[in-house]
Design a protein around this nucleic acid. Structure first.
Lengths: 224, 224
DNA sequence: CATTGGCTTAAGCCTACTTTAACAAGAAAG
DNA sequence: CTTTCTTGTTAAAGTAGGCTTAAGCCAATG
């Protein structure tokens, strides 16, 4: 899988480079729009990551001109947090998804994977456990086929528990995985999320989908 | 080391069979997906080699369904040279490595060996003693394959005893290992925990899983 | 038979977890 | 720009699981 990164901030550029290489992608780099356009026409990429705030030729133009030259690979754009409105403009120009800076590495990798997969027309990877089905791509959860609405953090908790079935997941472990950094260990957020999850997954309270192991952590019920 | 080979081409199947047997593996064979799934659920293999191009149930489905049934052994997939793109799909389905046909025998053996070694590192470290099996990762204990629920401290006591088999573990030693600090030496907590453990491990009272050595401590029964 | 150490049981209490509600910040809507 | 809604976070009050204690009993040892 070959990825092009278009970014003028050299610090961020190398960070992205390392991140993606570590995840097994071959990476090409461009630090301005002209180079980007040249490379996009030269090679068949599986994905391009484009920072909108580029010097000389801005990100929108890169995307528009690339699309005009029949570049079909998915494009993920990066926008500054306070310029999030640009996402609309970027998507109009031909981008496929956007991410606001700063972002978590996990978040970026998830988007990258999702875009590449979507482009290939692949099925969504499902995690199933009894009546619970979690689509790791669309981040949708169904219970016996019925959608339930989860917030971002509720989803993360459930996904982590489902990815570690039959393992006792301690609250610290959950906290560390959910928050990249800067987390407060003596807070009861996790308990609150678990409580809300239980209510959404099983309003009747008959399934006990998430077991509590007092003093040790939580675990997805093995007998579902 | 037990290996399952799933391959519909009978010539290749026997070739692989002979190769692996000569290298000291016990080999089971399946020439279609249904047999493969049956065998995977029946036996705990150390590795499965799956040809993607199977008739009826294709290789992807075999892998997906096996993974859904909590088959955790490493899976090596075989793809035709001109279908190498399938490797991505296969890895997504839950395979661990791939090899394109045709291949050299040495290459295959190297992969097989690597996968089995890698899996050994990732496997849950089990401590077994007679009917007792303790998984130090998931902190689960089974007696003759049946789960028993232990509290945090009951688990710690049992783990420490199993980690020191055939050693007499004094009550002070247990206390010091179970409590980080601040422990009261003239308390009978340990006796209470041991009592509860014995009842949970062996409700009938016929096994005597934890021996008492009067004045010295406890020891896991060597004759289990 | 006396003494010592270990076992069992039940009750109290502590702490981990649950639940609920309120608040703050950000996003969306008007 | 203001309002409104969503969602993450905090705090407080309530609950219960299980750790701990203690008392009485039993078994082993000499």
């Amino acid at each position: 899988m070959r990825v092009l990164i278009v970014e003028d901030d050299s610090r961020l550029l190398t960070q992205l480079d390392q991140l993606l290489q570590k995840s097994g992608y071959s990476v090409d780099l461009a630090d301005d729009g002209a180079k980007a356009l040249f490379l996009l026409n030269e090679h068949p990429y599986d994905l391009a990551i484009v920072d909108i705030g580029l010097p000389v030729v801005d990100g929108f133009e890169v995307i528009q001109r690339a699309r005009k030259n029949n570049v079909t690979c998915p494009i993920l754009i990066l926008t500054a947090r306070d310029r999030w409105q640009e996402k609309v403009e970027g998507l109009d120009a031909g981008a496929d998804d956007y991410l606001t800076k700063p972002f978590h590495n996990e978040e970026l990798l998830a988007r990258v994977k999702a875009l590449i997969r979507r482009a290939a027309g692949k099925a969504h990877p499902l995690i199933e456990k009894g009546p619970i089905a979690l689509d790791t791509l669309s981040e949708e959860v169904t219970i016996n086929g019925n959608y339930i609405e989860l917030t971002a953090y509720e989803y993360k908790v459930l996904e982590y528990l489902l990815l570690n079935p039959q393992k006792i997941v301690s609250k610290t472990e959950l906290t560390e995985h959910i928050y990249d950094q800067d987390f407060d260990l003596d807070s009861n957020v996790i308990e609150v999320f678990v409580g809300r999850l239980r209510k959404k997954i099983d309003p009747e309270g008959t399934l006990n989908p998430i077991e509590t192991l007092r003093g040790r952590g939580y675990r997805i019920n093995r007998d579902l």
